[in-house]
Design a protein around this nucleic acid. Structure first.
Lengths: 366, 366
DNA sequence: TTGTAAGCGTTATCAA
DNA sequence: TTGATAACGCTTACAA
């Protein structure tokens, strides 16, 4: 393992000079510097091999170090969902070429915080947790000496305490509702996933977006836009490739059919995500009802397909620029780590409606 | 930042004693040790905060350090495939509770090796690359001073140079072929994905497995088991949630229909994975042929579903214990890192046929 | 422009 | 059973 002293000896020079030269300090003459660099290369000097020594010295002088390591915290089971996969893809797209390593941390309360955090080896954290779930994590991390006040960026969820990159939920729901209204639907039902411990800002924004679209059509939301409280499991991924996993087949229940009995005028559904849209579709099929002949469904996220017999996705959905969000969050993180960005930057991206076969003009129902 | 010296001063004792006590050295009397530990806790001493110092000292005495960091190398786009997701899930299941951090590294040639490798901060590597693709990576890593000869474990692919945990491909193909033969099919076609730069051992094992099943039925493989060279893209995931990605809709071509014209006796297909099985299914549908009425298809991996209108997966497939493989590989890695396992351990796991709606008894075709 | 010296916090050796 | 000392390789303040 070749050290700066080895190089110094070989050059008949002092180690300090080598240290300065290697970092391109202007106090060392260009010729000396060049010679030292040449010898260093020749001897195969590898600066990163001596990271601990450098860290100690830096610490002594009260400096921070960049590790080129970014942690990414995702909810459990994220790996099985295309939604998170797309975000993740964007993150890696940006970080990898810059030489950053990506550390995956589920950061659930039940596992210990990986020692890499305590060691101060992580430069920052990207995460995808809603505010309520993230509060305890944030507290833990902030209290971890090795992490301290390093930057965090939230993906998809708004945050009051740090940066966020997310989508315009209001606009997305507006697009979905408007699409159905333009097709002629007049009585819509918006899915609502009630989970009392989760941040409601996103759902509220979506509800307001749909209401706005209804109002813009001169209709009264109270009458023309109902809420349908979906079974909790509809939100989950349909299929998990886990031997013995519970959700091999979707839960095909009839709460939706019951809802339609109670509200027979409803013809259009705004789902909470694609999985719930597809579950609803299956439920309608099971009841002998047809999409889009009898009912129209709009998914959300555009990450899960509903194939027809020929492999064409039929699910109309609101496409989220998830990969781009991952990319932007990662770029923002790099800027924060390198001190080029403000710690409270927020970015909001627009969605795009992908019209497909699950939506059509309504026909008169009995 | 509290140091051993701080503790020593507070105890009116020498720092060396603190060092020994903290590591439970028997030379320090139990009472002293206990007292020191108590004070250390009180003062909030965090050993991992001083990792660099410890590393330097360790290095000086020629010791290795455990970082509790394992790298996982997966092929590009792995994040969008359930196959890799399941492997990954297993890995994380085991590593996370043990306090290991998981570093994701695509390790493609075009990005620089993350500095974390050069620094010696990675304890070992789990990877999922076939031998031919992995050879250059392995060379690079072995030549990286910070990684050197640390352990590697291969998932799914056999390796001559290091550990592997994989499945019994021969047995899996045997199960699939036997299933079709037992249903009464007598003329089978096995999918073959020709990519000349990839390790063929796996495909060879599967072909031999299917041949064996045919022979065990008293039939001649040369006549009763054909190979169908599938379009390259059939192997890829059907749906990628990437804005503007190329593969939004499957390629529904007719090479399979052409094949059936040339070999009209064929009634049963052994796919190379689930995606190719589903693509084949779509192709048959497009040609007005029906599964399983006219043809039976067996997938492989059991990671991608083919839903009927009610959300029930119809694809018969060979289930791979992917999560378990991830778990075993991770456990093996921990054993290697802690010096408890041999460096050439191999594990082979069995598959299980999941019979569903895509296979049935053949009927007489025109 | 270059050299000197001190110190970061730990571990291991050796002396007490 | 405990204490003193030297080193690991680097960065920086200061002296030459």
């Amino acid at each position: 393992m070749v050290t700066q002293r080895d190089i110094a000896q070989r050059c008949g020079i002092h180690q300090t000079t080598v240290s300065l030269a290697l970092r391109g300090d202007p106090r060392i003459s260009p010729e000396t510097t060049e010679h030292i660099l040449k010898i260093a290369r020749e001897m195969g000097y590898d600066p990163s091999a001596h990271a601990p020594a450098r860290r100690m010295a830096a610490h002594r002088h009260g400096h921070e170090v960049r590790n080129h390591v970014i942690a990414v915290a995702m909810p459990p089971q994220f790996i099985h969902m295309h939604y998170y996969a797309a975000l993740f893809q964007g993150i890696v797209d940006v970080l990898e070429p810059e030489g950053y390593a990506v550390v995956l941390a589920s950061l659930r309360g039940d596992s210990p915080l990986p020692t890499i955090f305590n060691r101060g080896d992580v430069d920052g954290l990207l995460h995808c947790h809603d505010a309520k779930h993230f509060v305890p994590l944030e507290a833990t991390l902030r209290a971890t000496p090795g992490f301290g006040d390093r930057p965090m960026v939230s993906l998809m969820w708004p945050s009051d305490t740090h940066c966020a990159v997310r989508i315009d939920d209001h606009g997305g729901a507006y697009q979905a509702a408007r699409h159905l209204l333009e097709l002629g639907h007049r009585h819509l039902a918006q899915f609502f996933g009630h989970s009392d411990d989760s941040d409601l800002r996103v759902q509220n924004a979506r509800q307001e977006g749909a209401r706005q679209a209804v109002r813009d059509f001169g209709l009264d939301p109270a009458e023309h836009l109902l809420l349908f409280d979906i079974p909790g499991r509809w939100i989950s991924p349909l299929w998990r490739p886990v031997a013995g996993a519970p959700a091999e087949r979707p839960i095909v229940g009839d709460p939706l059919v019951q809802f339609l009995r109670d509200h027979p005028q409803t013809t259009g559904f705004l789902a909470i995500n694609d999985a719930s849209a597809i579950q609803a579709w299956f439920s309608l099929n099971a009841a002998g009802l047809r999409v889009p002949d009898d009912y129209s469904i709009v998914g959300f996220d555009d990450v899960d397909p509903m194939y027809d017999d020929f492999g064409h996705n039929q699910l109309t959905s609101v496409r989220l620029p998830l990969v781009e969000i991952g990319r932007r969050a990662a770029r923002l993180m790099i800027d924060l780590v390198t001190g080029k960005a403000d710690d409270l930057a927020h970015q909001v991206l627009e969605t795009q409606l992908m019209a497909r076969g699950s939506t059509a003009a309504p026909r008169n129902l009995p």
